[in-house]
Amino acid sequence: MSDSQIRQELIDDGVVVLNPGRTLDNNNAHEMVEVISSTQEAGRNNIIIDMCDMEFISSAGVGSILGSVETSREAGGDIVLCNVSDAIMHVLVVLDLVDYLTIKTDRQQSAEFCGIPRG
């Protein structure tokens, strides 16, 4: 169904960076959940979602992140969003999610949040 492919990168043992591409909506939200779930099941609960390419996020896209945050946090990790554009940030503000989600400026900050030393 989906043409998109979520890029995955292991930057440290235990920290995975996901880049969903230009959109996170009905077309790839299901795939996003699958990727996050399998990452968590592999014991990697620190997940960085790099939104550097993202232009649009739908309710389903938001839902794909929300359902996974609790699982990571309960396991001592977190799901960190970074490189969030103004348009995406606007949606997160409208949905009153800014306080709930961990949002960092870039990958470096996100990595540091996840416990990876600068370098």
């Binding site: 009905n26 939200a29 299901h30 959940v33 309710s59 389903a60 945050v69």
Partner: peptide, 14 residues
């Protein structure tokens, strides 16, 4: 799954 994710996003439900 997409419906439930949409619902989750709309309601900002866990």
């Amino acid at each position: 799954d997409v419906l439930l994710l949409t619902l989750s996003g709309q309601l900002t439900a866990v």
